[in-house]
Simulated scan of single mutants.
Amino acid sequence: MSTATPSATVRVARPRIEGDWFFVPAPQAHRPFRLFCFPHAGGDATAYTPLARAIAPAAEVWALRPPARGGRSRHPMPADFTALAADVTAAITPHLADGGGRFGFYGQSFGALLAYEVARSLPADLRPELVVVAGAPCPAEWADRESKDLDPAELLRTTGLEELVQADPDLVELALSGIRTDLAVSATFRHRPHAPIGSALYAVAGAEDPMLATTDLGGWAAYTRGPFGHRVLPGGHLLATVDQPGPVDLLTSLLAPSQGPATPARDTKEQPSW
């Protein structure tokens, strides 16, 4: 009689919370590239769970937990964008100064603007090596979105969240409340000219995004002294969602150590420029 060999047990680390501000959906036993992810307006950290699982073990996702929603519903949102960026910068700095390895930022829509502004606020020696901005115009063009005039219910439909919450009116109201809160903060953003950062910067957008002309992506080139590239991908306004991991292949290729030229790349075609 043959004896079957039991299959090896794969241990998956449980998600964990890091302080008030960060959620790690798929912790890695080793220390890979740490990818800090910034949610869209009304979004929460859990939206990055599919991305975290799909990109492991190449990277470990640390998703930002914004105030005034989910597990932080009792934490008030800062009064304006400047205060929010300052709070996030203060919260993220200890995790960058621990000498733990390489890291980068990924943000979508409102989260893209916040990711860039936090990167800019950090000391030069603590800035991420890579910033990926998705579905967002560059800071100088942000005011043209007239965020304060956007209809939250329409934004809920545009981001594809309506289908996820339409069966529960309470969930709809919670989602709309979060969007209203973030749009109010977004409306306080004021662009001020500044020196470009040295991080590699990559701008992406969904081909079916009704909120952003994909030709706007090249405007981000002026915001870095480092390598720059952009690309249009299949998808809508949000690429990473609660049921879609997003641009995993692109992110994996960008964070690979062998990627990125020593000098800035300024090709503005729809293909990667490094």
Rank of each mutant, 00 (worst) to 15 (best):
P76W: 04
R190S: 14
L126R: 14
P227E: 02
R16V: 13
V133N: 00
L174M: 12
T241L: 08
Y116S: 01
A136G: 01
S121L: 05
D267A: 13
H230M: 05
G107I: 07
R14C: 09
P210S: 05
T188S: 15
G71W: 07
K269P: 00
Y106L: 12
I17Y: 08
A91S: 10
D149E: 15
L64G: 01
P94W: 07
M1I: 00
L217A: 06
I179L: 12
V12W: 09
T159A: 09
P257R: 13
R157L: 14
P15I: 09
P66Q: 08
L239F: 01
T263K: 13
Q244S: 15
D98A: 15
A59K: 11
P261F: 10
D80E: 10
S73C: 05
P137Q: 09
V185H: 01
A140C: 05
L156V: 15
T3E: 04
A262P: 02
A58W: 05
A29D: 14
Q166N: 14
V118S: 00
R102E: 15
P272L: 04
V61Y: 02
D170K: 10
R231N: 07
A240D: 05
D209H: 00
E173L: 15
D216E: 12
A205P: 00
V242K: 13
L35N: 03
A124R: 14
L250G: 05
R65M: 07
A136T: 07
D98Q: 12
L217K: 04
A187V: 01
P196Y: 05
S109R: 02
S2F: 11
M211R: 08
H40F: 02
A207W: 06
A184E: 13
P137W: 04
M77V: 07
A13M: 11
R11Y: 11
P128V: 04
T268V: 02
I179N: 05
W142Q: 03
L238T: 08
H237P: 02
L35G: 00
A221C: 11
F103E: 11
A29N: 10
I17C: 03
W62K: 04
T3V: 08
P50L: 14
R225H: 12
L254W: 06
P15A: 13
A115I: 00
S199E: 08
P27W: 09
P247D: 11
L183Q: 11
A134M: 02
I92P: 03
A140D: 14
D125C: 06
F22Q: 05
L164N: 06
S199Q: 10
D144L: 13
L250V: 11
E141G: 06
W220L: 00
R157K: 15
Q244K: 12
T158K: 03
V12C: 06
W62P: 02
L113S: 00
T3K: 03
G260H: 10
P137T: 14
V133F: 01
A221S: 15
L35Q: 01
A63S: 14
V10T: 11
F38Q: 03
A175L: 02
Q271C: 03
